[in-house]
Design a protein around this nucleic acid. Structure first.
Length: 358
DNA sequence: CAGACGTGGAT
DNA sequence: TATCCAAGTCT
C-alpha cells in the first residue's frame, strides 16, 4: 500500500470541484482572481453544521444586503437576527455580528490573515480559523471538519472513536497538506467528502485515494469514522399562547440574549419541562382570557424534543400591562422568528406563513 | 470534557 | 417513522 499524496487529490479537484457562490474556481485562481475574505468567512460560519443547500439562499441574502464586513458591523442586530432566522444555531448570528464589529472597528475593516489572528475573533474556532487562513489567504493550515474526519479516518483506517481521535487525525491532515495549494487542498478534501467519500455508499471507484485507502483495502469503508454512542433525546412539554388583537396584531416577545434561541423572537410560552403528569393548561398564560385549544406541535432540537400545546385567543381588546410587543400578522417576515415559533403560530393561524403552493 | 446549541433533507 | 447528519463553537 503506497502512502497517500495530495497531488492526485488536487488533480481530481481541478476537474471535479463544485461551483459555489463564495468560491474562486482553481482555473480562475490561476488567472489571479482572489477570494474575498468576507465571503469566505461568511460562508464558513453559515456552513457550520449546516448543508450547502440550506446556506446558498442565506449567503446571497446577506452579501446583497451587507456587501462588506463594515456594512454588517454597522447593521442593527435585530436586522441580522431576523435575516438569520430559520438557519439555526443562533449563537452563530450573534457572533457573526460581534466578529464583523471587531474586524471593522478594531482591524480597520481588514480580516486578520493568519490562523492565530482569526482564531481570536468571536465565533471562529479551530476549524474556521484554519479554513479562512487556507482558503482566503493560502496559509498552510491543517483544515479538519466532518468531511475531512471521514476521509482521513478511512484513508488510515483509524479505529479509535471520535472525538478522541481528532488530534491523531489532525496530525495526518497536517502531514498531507501541500505547501503550495493549501486552500485548494482543504476545499478538495471537503468536496471529496461531500461527493465521493460519503457517509453511506461511498463511490470508491471514483476516488483519487482508492489506491492508498486502508479502509477500502481491508474493510468496509462505511465502518469509518468510528464514533462514540449517542444519548437518547428527552421530551419536554409546554404550552404556547397565540393572542391576536382587534387590529390583527400578534403578541410577541424577545428571548434573552443567551441560551436556546437566544436573542430571537417568540410567542409567549410556559416553561418547557420534563413533567409528564398530564395535560398542560392555561394557568401560565400571559394574561387571563378565553384561551381556546388549537392543537399541538412537535419540534426536535439537538438535545431534546419539544411538544407544545397551542392555545389561541382573539380578536380581543389589548390587555392591560406589558406582555411584549404586538406585530401585524401580515408583517411577521420581518421578525426573528425561529422555525419552532413559526410552527406554533401556524398551528393557530394557518394563513400566517403562506407558502408558494399554499 | 461533555453538554448546549437548530434545522431540514436523506435514507 | 426513526435515525443520522451538514464546512463547529462555546462553556
Amino acid at each position: 500500500m503506497k502512502a497517500p499524496q495530495s497531488a492526485p487529490l488536487l488533480t481530481w479537484y481541478d476537474r471535479h470541484h463544485r461551483e459555489l457562490p463564495w468560491r474562486i474556481s482553481p482555473s480562475a485562481a490561476k488567472r489571479g482572481v482572489k477570494p474575498d475574505p468576507y465571503y469566505i468567512w461568511m460562508s464558513e460560519v453559515m456552513l457550520q453544521q449546516t448543508t450547502v443547500a440550506a446556506v446558498k439562499a442565506y449567503f446571497a441574502k446577506f452579501v446583497a444586503r451587507w456587501p462588506t464586513v463594515t456594512d454588517l458591523a454597522e447593521a442593527p442586530s435585530e436586522d441580522v437576527m431576523a435575516a438569520w432566522a430559520g438557519l439555526g444555531y443562533y449563537a452563530r448570528a450573534r457572533n457573526l455580528k460581534k466578529c464583523a464589529e471587531a474586524v471593522a472597528f478594531e482591524h480597520g475593516g481588514i480580516f486578520p490573515d493568519t490562523e492565530e489572528g482569526l482564531r481570536a475573533l468571536p465565533g471562529i474556532g479551530d476549524y474556521t480559523s484554519a479554513a479562512v487562513a487556507a482558503i482566503a489567504f493560502n496559509r498552510p493550515a491543517a483544515v479538519m471538519d466532518g468531511n475531512v474526519e471521514r476521509v482521513i479516518s478511512r484513508l488510515y483506517a483509524i479505529e479509535a472513536p471520535l472525538p478522541g481521535s481528532k488530534p491523531q487525525m489532525k496530525a495526518k491532515v497536517a502531514e498531507l497538506t501541500p505547501i503550495d495549494r493549501p486552500g485548494d487542498f482543504a476545499q478538495a478534501m471537503m468536496d471529496l467528502g461531500a461527493t465521493i467519500c460519503t457517509p453511506k455508499r461511498p463511490a470508491c471507484a471514483l476516488c483519487p485515494f482508492n489506491d492508498a485507502c486502508l479502509a477500502l483495502a481491508t474493510d468496509e469503508p462505511e465502518r469509518f469514522p468510528v464514533k462514540a454512542a449517542k444519548k437518547a433525546k428527552p421530551v419536554r412539554l409546554g404550552a404556547a399562547f397565540i393572542a391576536v388583537d382587534r387590529e390583527g396584531r400578534l403578541l410577541l416577545r424577545k428571548r434573552v440574549e443567551s441560551g436556546l434561541l437566544g436573542g430571537m423572537t417568540e410567542v409567549p410560552t410556559t416553561d418547557w419541562t420534563s413533567r409528564q403528569d398530564g395535560e398542560t393548561g392555561t394557568e401560565a398564560a400571559p394574561f387571563p382570557a378565553d384561551w381556546q385549544a388549537a392543537g399541538s406541535i412537535s419540534h426536535v432540537f439537538t438535545h431534546f424534543e419539544l411538544r407544545l400545546s397551542i392555545f389561541r385567543v382573539g380578536p380581543i381588546d389589548k390587555p392591560s400591562g406589558d406582555h411584549g410587543f404586538w406585530v401585524p400578522v401580515t408583517e411577521l417576515d420581518g421578525e426573528a422568528l425561529p422555525t419552532v415559533m413559526k410552527k406554533a403560530i401556524a398551528a393557530a393561524i394557518p394563513t400566517a406563513f403562506p407558502t408558494p403552493k399554499g
